[in-house]
């Protein structure tokens, strides 16, 4: 889950405060917060990440490592996996790991054809923590 998706998730858990309320209560710049949620790139200053961690009551590290896994990077991985028919492994927030081939993906979800004929699942993108694309084995 990217930083943007994660803070959106935390915001929902907290009862859905608006960015304006967050600016008042936690001193989080609302314009920057909107960028964090809405931009798919790696954004957010160190200071704001610390304020967000304090506001949501989570360790700073929990937000820090997610900065390196933005939505755009997941899009690139999904695009590569789908275009080349490569296998992708998705580590979900639930602790499960799903592996298979991507049949489609869009703004909010992706369809994964699971290995071993186990059917298809629609995975919500915001639940994907980390991922890995597996290309063909190098020829010996």
């Amino acid at each position: 889950m990217s930083l943007g998706d994660y803070v959106r998730f935390l915001r929902a858990l907290k009862g859905g405060p608006t960015p304006f309320e967050m600016a008042e209560e936690g001193g989080i710049p609302s314009a920057e917060y909107r960028q964090i949620e809405q931009r798919y790139r790696e954004v957010a200053s160190d200071e704001t990440v610390q304020k967000l961690a304090r506001y949501f009551g989570v360790p700073v590290e929990e937000l820090e490592w997610r900065r390196a896994w933005p939505r755009k990077a997941l899009t690139a991985a999904l695009d590569q996996a789908m275009r080349r028919g490569w296998r992708i492994h998705l580590m979900l927030r639930t602790g499960e790991c799903l592996s298979g081939r991507v049949k489609w993906f869009d703004l909010g979800a992706l369809l994964l054809e699971l290995e071993g004929g186990s059917g298809e699942v629609v995975v919500q993108r915001h639940m994907v923590e980390t991922w890995g694309v597996e290309g063909p084995e190098p020829a010996e």
């Binding site: 499960e96 979800a109 059917g119 699942v121 995975v123 919500q124 639940m127």
Partner: peptide
């Protein structure tokens, strides 16, 4: 169900086929 709370979903038929 809010999509924000959903991790994934699948058709029942898919699981039976598996």
């Amino acid at each position: 169900l809010r999509k924000l709370a959903i991790a994934y979903y699948r058709r029942e038929g898919d699981r039976r086929e598996a």
